[in-house]
Design a protein around this nucleic acid. Structure first.
Length: 322
DNA sequence: GCATGTCAAGTTGTG
DNA sequence: CACAACTTGACATGC
């Protein structure tokens, strides 16, 4: 087997095989931090004090995003998932705001642009992963409307920092999976282009398997994020190899590098629920067919960058043995 | 200071 | 029917 490469930092000259490992949102042992606030805390302040507080937090977070990217580069990490509340409460009905109406808005915009240039230069791939409140398949119009608003916010951020992926789950089932997927498709078709051109769909560990999502993804050219841990928790009749290939084809159709997720079960595969994530990735959980494949793999592990670095080294050893 | 409970949002499954 | 799990701190509050 050819040597495999783990990030653009180390990969430049070595063949064309490239498995790029990504970090999710936070660091464990590095001085990078993100602040937040709550609506409850904000509501005790007059509006001008609210905007000042929000401005300070956003500026802090934008600067720490830059720091996160510099740190990722130093560690050889090739992708970074940006936490959803980078600008906390931005779309909230009462506390919401925009960069134009907070005091340091222009500095913050400039900092985001610095992040965009740095990520492009260092080839660090950026993505967003809105949390469980974004549900496009919901039968409740208000839930869908809020979800779209949140996606538009994340699309603006993605545009500002040059992120090419906003990844979501298909949502609830409501007793009829096909009906829910049909609602999803209808909402998807009406999304603004800024959202649609970045949106990806991930199999989850409760409801939607790769087999459920792939027909929709193939039909609409929606890239499918293949989470192999979720697939193992919530299997269908598809093999890991087949799911990897078919998901890969959806990325190819969209013209973007494939993205997958990996994690290991905290309690192992035998004891209790395998769903909670372990501190590190057990190299045995990496599908063999992923080795040497050109794609991004987000490492979902509690030890954060320590787990990414350890997995990089484990993969290096693996490739030397084979 | 330090410990503890809380935090916008949805859905599912468990007790 | 109420509540925890998703992921995860960081913040606000109270001693």
């Amino acid at each position: 087997m050819n040597a495999i490469i783990y990030s653009h930092q180390t990969c430049k000259k070595v063949g064309n095989a490239l498995l790029r490992l990504g970090l999710c949102c936070l660091f464990k042992n590095e001085a990078v931090s993100f602040r937040t606030t709550t609506v409850k805390a904000l509501s005790a302040l007059p509006r001008d004090r609210q905007l000042l507080k929000l401005s300070e937090i956003c500026l802090h977070n934008a600067r720490n995003l830059h720091l996160a990217l510099e740190t990722a580069r130093r560690l050889g990490i090739g992708a970074f998932r940006i936490m959803s509340p980078l600008f906390p409460r931005m779309t909230h009905p009462e506390a919401g705001y925009s960069l134009e109406n907070i005091p340091d808005g222009e500095i913050i915009s400039g900092t985001l642009n610095t992040c965009k240039l740095f990520a492009a230069k260092q080839q660090i791939r950026l993505s967003f992963h809105p949390d469980q409140f974004v549900v496009l398949s919901s039968p409740h119009p208000a839930v869908v409307a809020n979800s779209i608003q949140e996606l538009e916010y994340q699309a603006r951020l993605a545009e500002a920092v040059g992120a090419d992926v906003i990844n979501i789950h298909a949502g609830g089932v409501y007793g009829d999976k096909q009906a829910a997927l049909k609602r999803f498709a209808e909402v998807y078709d009406a999304l603004p282009e800024s959202v649609r051109c970045r949106l990806s769909l991930e199999n989850d560990d409760i409801s939607y398997t790769p087999g459920d999502l792939l027909p929709l993804c193939e039909q609409r050219a929606i890239p499918m994020v293949y989470d192999v841990h979720h697939h193992r928790c919530n299997p269908d009749n598809m093999s890991i190899e087949e799911a990897t290939e078919r998901a890969g084809a959806t990325w190819k159709a969209a013209g973007v590098e494939q993205q997958c997720h990996i994690s290991s079960p905290k309690a192992g595969w035998e004891n209790g629920s395998p769903r909670p994530h372990a501190d590190y990735i057990n190299p045995g959980d990496i599908p063999y067919c992923w080795i040497g494949r050109q794609m991004t793999v987000d490492v979902e592990a509690k030890a954060k960058e320590l787990a990414v670095v350890r997995l990089m080294n484990d993969l290096k050893l693996l490739s030397q043995v084979s």
